[in-house]
């Protein structure tokens, strides 16, 4: 994984794990690798990984089982909330950027819908 050196690494690791959970690469209830192993795989510092994991534990996305390690929560509510939160963040960025271009709400919706259709059609052709 490549990191953007301008953004705190622990935030990027959080994003990376969110993505893994939402896409199902890390299933609900699955065990995470040990901190040290995760750090070695991502070639980042153990303390950084530790910080990312602690925050995820605080958010309830991960749960610690004493002596057994960290697991993805099996609380579906939390996972749905997580997915919504990540989607909202992404859309928020898009919204701000389009708003900066002075697009109206209608124009935004149309442009986005049209873009999605085009992408789908493009994929079908391939």
């Amino acid at each position: 994984m490549e990191f953007d050196d301008k953004v705190p690494i622990y935030l990027q690791i959080k994003q990376y794990l969110y993505q893994a959970i939402i896409t199902g690469r890390l299933k609900s209830g699955a065990q995470l690798p040990a901190v040290r192993q995760l750090a070695a795989e991502l070639t980042v510092n153990v303390n950084t990984v530790q910080r990312a994991l602690s925050e995820l534990i605080q958010e309830g996305v991960l749960v610690t089982r004493r002596g057994r390690g960290n697991f993805v929560t099996d609380d579906i509510k939390v996972l749905i909330e997580l997915k919504n939160r990540v989607i909202a963040t992404e859309l928020g960025t898009l919204y701000r950027q389009l708003a900066d271009l002075n697009l109206s709400a209608e124009e935004m919706k149309d442009a986005f819908a049209q873009y999605v259709d085009e992408q789908e059609a493009h994929h079908d052709h391939q």
Partner: peptide, 24 residues
């Protein structure tokens, strides 16, 4: 990273920062 004992300090000198920056 996998090797380092928690209490140990590792000081790495380098003049290409990007070589090592992620683990610092």
């Amino acid at each position: 990273i996998a090797w380092k004992p928690a209490a140990a300090t590792v000081m790495i000198s380098d003049h290409h920062v990007n070589d090592v920056v992620n683990i610092l």
